[in-house]
């Protein structure tokens, strides 16, 4: 297996709250290999986006602990100048809402050219513009030279998301972090956007971190999956194995809540609501909603332990008696 390009180890993020610090991410670890892909799945508020923003140093005001290394270079606590050189050049990121994530007063060509020139000062503006048009072509935007002169409001949501992708891959990053890239889009457009991402990944060998709450998006677009709950990774493993035999009760619940065409059974929702960062439950944070919970779950928070090819943080399924 090739060396990991991005290694995140025991990441903690907390924000200042009215009653002391609010822990939003509590010990998240994952790695992305060259050309590999990882899906980070979880409900809103599980800490997916915050983890990624923390890695890129884009969370002013938050307290970040742990380690995030890009090709051996520590990113947490690095100077803004150093982080700036990594962001957009080695680690690209695209965001959920393409309506608000592009600057309304600049043409998309200019925005892409800006990203190019931010990392290559010798690049002339004419050359940057020409390259911007190529990039628009790369993300399958028709009439790229005309579209380069368009403003974001003149493009559809899918087009804008393609523009975002073009910006993020403009400097050929090693890793593309896609934060809910299709959530704000129509279903038909979702598939097109995922196709573009997958194609770029194959053609350019870009590693992918796909953040989503939609397991349907994960299938076929990632080779590994990490399930997050309450600011922690509760299960990680190869995508196919995890989907075939989910270990953690939460993962099972997520899969059971998906409508499926190949089974004669209605989707089953997970009861209850996800907890809030200001009041995590004691013990295993999932125990109030867990069908398998026993008394011990209320007391100690389980760590990730190996279970077949995967790792699962659940003391019930990991117990020898359960296997």
């Amino acid at each position: 297996m090739p060396e990991p390009v991005l290694v995140v180890d025991d990441l903690h993020v907390s924000f200042r709250g009215p009653d002391g610090p609010v822990p939003v991410v509590r010990g998240v670890s994952f790695e992305v290999h060259e050309g590999g892909s990882l899906a980070v799945v979880g409900e809103s508020g599980s800490g997916k986006t915050v983890s990624m923003l923390a890695v890129l140093g884009l969370l002013p005001g938050a307290t970040v602990r742990g380690s995030a290394r890009y090709r051996g270079t520590e990113l947490l606590g690095a100077s803004q100048a150093r982080l700036r050189a990594v962001r957009g050049a080695h680690l690209g990121m695209i965001f959920q809402d393409p309506m608000t994530s592009l600057n309304p007063v600049l043409t998309v060509g200019r925005q892409i050219a800006g990203v190019l020139r931010a990392h290559d000062r010798r690049l002339r503006s004419a050359a940057a513009r020409a390259r911007a048009v190529e990039l628009l072509d790369l993300v399958s935007i028709p009439q790229p030279d005309r579209r380069a002169r368009a403003y974001p409001h003149e493009l559809s949501g899918g087009m804008r998301q393609r523009v975002m992708i073009a910006m993020a891959v403009a400097n050929r990053p090693d890793v593309l972090i896609a934060d809910e890239p299709t959530t704000a889009l129509d279903v038909t457009v979702q598939a097109q956007i995922l196709d573009v991402v997958t194609r770029l990944r194959r053609e350019q060998g870009i590693g992918l971190v796909l953040i989503t709450h939609d397991l349907g998006v994960v299938a076929g677009n990632a080779d590994r999956v990490a399930i997050m709950y309450a600011g922690r990774v509760v299960e990680d493993g190869p995508m196919t194995a995890t989907f075939a035999s989910p270990g953690h009760p939460y993962t099972r619940g997520l899969l059971a809540s998906l409508p499926r065409l190949d089974r004669r059974r209605d989707p089953v929702p997970i009861g209850g609501a996800p907890p809030s960062p200001s009041s995590w439950p004691t013990g295993c944070p999932f125990h109030p909603r867990c069908p398998l919970a026993v008394d011990a779950c209320r007391e100690a928070e389980p760590d990730l332990v190996a279970l077949g090819d995967a790792r699962v943080a659940c003391s019930v399924v990991a117990a020898p008696s359960h296997r």
């Binding site: 884009l58 800006g114 990203v115």
Partner: peptide, 9 residues
């Protein structure tokens, strides 16, 4: 946030 994430100064 996008601009910062793209490494714009």
């Amino acid at each position: 946030r996008t601009a910062r994430a793209m490494g714009i100064s």
